[in-house]
Structures are given as structure tokens and as C-alpha cells.
Design a protein around this nucleic acid. Structure first.
Lengths: 163, 163
DNA sequence: CGATTTCCTGACCGTTCGTTCAGTATTGAT
DNA sequence: ATCAATACTGAACGAACGGTCAGGAAATCG
């Protein structure tokens, strides 16, 4: 809170004028990440297309949300459940993860995704890949969201190897 | 330190009998992760094989080290550089990342990896994928290291899609 | 203009947490 | 049995940190 206040050029008290406490501040920030991700999840869920296509769209849109709301998603992926607020965020995240797992399962059943890798593992690797962007991405114009989304999608679905 | 002491069933002072301080403890733990990863990096570097093969071997071996030393690698990937010890660890990690980037570059030049994705991005996605295992992996016998290494390698190099 | 709400400061409180240290068992070698 | 090294405990210290509160500018409105 002190660092944050210093960065804002105000005192800690000023922050407490606008937010009930550290937790409330965290909750708002996490909600900004989660609401974006939940929006694309809902959007994808209602789509009347094969599971693979919906999954790929979910991945691409998630990357776009991640780029657009990078600081908030970065915060989200670092949450470990050390407080009620964090546990609530994890619960919301898990709901999205479940959608991913479902789509992977459907896509495997439909014969569009390889069945030789455990679907549960596939789902986790898929979003591990997406979320790993927060480890190095900087919004400096060097990486456009759609380009990055395409790269992630290509690597995940088609692999790095040629031929 | 308090939590740690409690978990060990001793007082905090007992820890300070064996370690100079929190930083020294962290340094040893991080070194245990880094030495393992550096070992496979060195092993791969000396191999006289095509870059793709060396890269794939590096990925598989890294997954095995990650599984074998899970708590330590988990610690490592959470380090952000908030102290000298953490910055030293990051520097060592970056050296390994550079090897990955070099191998990806070579493999692309050799025509074995797709050139339509920025090699720097490819390298980061590749190890983002590997390191994302720390987010959910639990060593409970449900996931054998070689199986997991194969899954990661398959997804990264051949992709999820069939055909 | 005055009144009220909004925004913010500065000082302070209580807790947490890494660390220190004097003293005490425990172990092992001679 | 003696001595010394080793392995701790318990109490305390001090800095860091989240949070509170009385009061004062600054903006807003009738």
C-alpha cells in the first residue's frame, strides 16, 4: 500500500478514502481480469460451432483479453488463495478452466484433437501456455494482440514442427 | 520463517542455527532448482545432433527435472527479482533461456521449426509451457515424469490437432 | 457568498515478521 | 568423566506494514 501510494504521488490515507482496504482494492483489480475472461467464455459457450473451433476461439480471445488487461491478468495468475478475496477469484477462474476442459473433451470425442494425451492435461497445458504470456509480455507495441493470439493458437494446435 | 519453523516442529531460532538468514535459505533452494536445469542445459549443449532434437531433449529433460525437484522449480518460477539473491537466480535462468532461444533459431534456420512464428516468441512460449506445469502438478503418482515430458513435447512440437 | 461534500495529509497505533542472543540440553570425542 | 562442539529454546528487539483518525484544503452546489 505504501509503494502504491508513493507511485500515485499521494499518501496511504488517500487510498483508504477510495477503497475499504487492501482486499477491496485487490478484489476490484481481480474482477477486472475475471470479467473480461468470463465475457469471452460466455461468448464462446453460446456459439453453435464444433468444439475445436470454439476452443480455438476461446484461446485467441483469451490472449486478446490478456494483452488488453495485462496488469490485471498478471495479478490474477499470481493469486494463490491466501485470503477470501483470492479464494473467490480462484473459484471464478476454476469455472472457466472447467469450460476449457469440457471443450477439450468434446473436441477429442469429435476426433478433432489428439486422444493420446490426457484431456485434463491437455486443457491445463493449453491455458498454461496462454497464461505464460504474463511472464514476459510487455505492452510496448512490439507484439500486437491478434498476432500474438495467432502465434499461441498455431503453436498449441498445429505445433512448432514443420511438415 | 515462522510458518516454516512451525512446519518443521522447531522454533525460528533453530533455523538460524543452520542458515545465515532468509536469503541464504532461499539461495540454497533456488540453487537446487537451477543446478538441475543447468545440468541438462550443459548436457544438451554438448550433444552432436540437429538443433530440433537437442531442443526437444532439453524440453523433455527440463520437464523431468521440474517433476523431480518440483517445490524448488516452483519457487524459482515465482521469483521476481525483489532481492540480490532473486536477481542472481534470474540471471542464471536467463542464461538457460538464451540457450533455448539459440536452439530455436538454429532449428528454424535448419528448416525444422516453422518460421512463421517469431523465434523469440517461440522460445518463450516453449518454456512458458514447460514452467506452467508448476501451476497444477502434484507429485502423487498420477503423472509419471516421462509420460508428462512426452505430453509436453508432443503438444509443443506436433500440436493438439489431429492430422 | 456560505455550506456541504469530496479529497487528502500527517501522525499514530497494533501486528507481523526477520533477526539476535544469552542460556541450555544433547551429542561425540578423548 | 571431561570437555567441546553441536543443536536447540525463549525472550526480546526493531523495522516494515496495514490500517485509523482528527483535521484541513479543494471542489461543488444552492
Amino acid at each position: 500500500m505504501e509503494d502504491l501510494a508513493a507511485r500515485l504521488g499521494v499518501t496511504k490515507s488517500a487510498i483508504y478514502h477510495h477503497f475499504a482496504g487492501k482486499d477491496a482494492l485487490l478484489a476490484e483489480a481481480l474482477d477486472h481480469a475475471l470479467s473480461g475472461l468470463e465475457a469471452v467464455a460466455g461468448q464462446v459457450r453460446e456459439l453453435d460451432r464444433p468444439a475445436v473451433e470454439r476452443l480455438e476461439l476461446l484461446v485467441r480471445r483469451s490472449v486478446e483479453v490478456l494483452v488488453e488487461r495485462l496488469p490485471y491478468v498478471t495479478l490474477l495468475v499470481r493469486v494463490r488463495g491466501n485470503s477470501d478475496v483470492e479464494r473467490d477469484a480462484l473459484a471464478r477462474r476454476r469455472r472457466i478452466d472447467r469450460l476449457v476442459a469440457e471443450l477439450v473433451g468434446e473436441a477429442v470425442s469429435a476426433g478433432d484433437l489428439r486422444p493420446d494425451v490426457d484431456p485434463a492435461v491437455t486443457a491445463r497445458l493449453l491455458f498454461g501456455l496462454v497464461n505464460s504470456l504474463t511472464e514476459w509480455l510487455r505492452v510496448d507495441g512490439r507484439h500486437e494482440a491478434p498476432t500474438l493470439a495467432a502465434a499461441v493458437s498455431t503453436v498449441a494446435f498445429d505445433g512448432l514442427r514443420v511438415g
